[in-house]
């Protein structure tokens, strides 16, 4: 772990992207004004969509580079190229179609095998947590990857507050279901709401992050506002977004992709170059990072546990990782 110093050319300076957003907002307002009366889509019944610029700057206590100094993905790429099927299945759908989503006010229902359960507001959840920046590699199961500076706190710190019972072996998470604000939920592409889960020891691991921000600001809607999971040694789909429910359970919970295609997406979903997806190789990945447009040299070797083996391999000692993929 070393403090990150990405080369200045690799990131969009904040004033620049803020200014860009402001310009875009102005253009948006202008267009809406011009379109009055002739466009139904341009006339929002909800307040204007929050953009990364309207996101608040977060107070960050410390910054840790857990990506070995690798070049970071630009803010623009990380916020305009991702999977969040609730907003559509194309990589640019989340950025395009998440404008109506309202991440505030927010509350999370905590239930199951724990002493302190109930409904907690987001403010409640954040109370007493020290926010830190963690730069993690993010490896998608589709064999591309990014390097993203998340802002959050270890999930374990929150779990301790709820005092799970000895019988609790797993933690199950659920994403919010709001078809009116999440257009992708009107299709049957996945079985909504999205569900994910971790073994309790995985959830308690210090690398497991509950993120509320990225690039120093609150999470944009398209990246899982206001609260999402980041588990850097697992494939990206384990990082459930816009969490409304946390449940402590005794048995391995049913998780969305695992239920949909159990032979393709395991419950553990640890990044593993030796275990291929049945339809494609996981040995290498295309890295999306650095100063933008590179046609060549993007492909790199995928590392066991996404390069976090030293920290997490012991969690799976004695397990057959080919069977428990």
């Amino acid at each position: 772990m070393n403090v990150s110093t990405p080369s200045p050319s690799t990131i969009t300076p904040e004033p620049v992207y803020r200014r860009r957003r402001e310009v875009l907002k102005l253009i948006g307002l202008g267009a809406a004004g011009l379109a009055t009366g002739c466009s139904s889509q341009a006339a929002p019944s909800t307040p204007p969509p929050p953009t990364p610029a309207s996101a608040d700057a977060l107070t960050i206590a410390r910054r840790v580079d857990d990506a070995g100094g690798a070049a970071q993905t630009t803010l623009a790429d990380a916020t305009h190229y991702n999977n969040f099927y609730e907003f559509g299945t194309a990589k640019d759908d989340p950025a395009k179609h998440s404008g109506r989503f309202q991440p505030r006010p927010w509350s999370v229902e905590v239930g199951g095998l724990a002493q302190d359960t109930g409904r907690f507001t987001l403010e409640d959840i954040l109370k007493g947590q020290v926010l830190e920046e963690r730069v993690y590699r993010m490896r998608c199961v589709e064999a591309w990857s990014m390097v993203i500076p998340w802002v959050g706190f270890p999930l374990g710190n929150l779990i301790k507050r709820f005092k799970p019972l000895a019988s609790a072996k797993y933690v199950a998470f659920t994403t919010v279901e709001r078809p009116t604000q999440m257009p992708g939920q009107n299709t049957r592409v996945l079985d909504w709401p999205y569900r994910e889960g971790l073994r309790l020891d995985e959830a308690m691991h210090p690398l497991t992050l509950l993120a509320v921000g990225m690039y120093g600001r609150t999470l944009p809607n398209q990246n899982g506002a206001p609260l999402r999971l980041v588990v850097p040694w697992k494939y990206g789909f384990k990082g459930i977004k816009s969490i409304v429910k946390i449940e402590f359970v005794e048995r391995q919970p049913r998780t969305t992709w695992n239920v949909m295609a159990p032979d393709e997406y395991g419950f553990y979903a640890n990044v593993n170059p030796a275990v291929d997806h049945p339809r494609w190789s996981q040995a290498t990945e295309r890295r999306i990072a650095g100063s933008g447009f590179n046609l060549f040299g993007n492909r790199i070797a995928t590392l066991p546990f996404n390069g976090y083996a030293e920290q997490v391999a012991h969690l799976y000692a004695g397990m057959d990782l080919r069977r428990n993929f």
Binding site: T73, Y81, W144, R286, I288, F293, N294, L295
Partner: peptide, 9 residues
């Protein structure tokens, strides 16, 4: 350079 974040894809 307008092929987006993953130009090769």
């Amino acid at each position: 350079g307008t092929l987006g974040p993953d130009p090769v894809a």
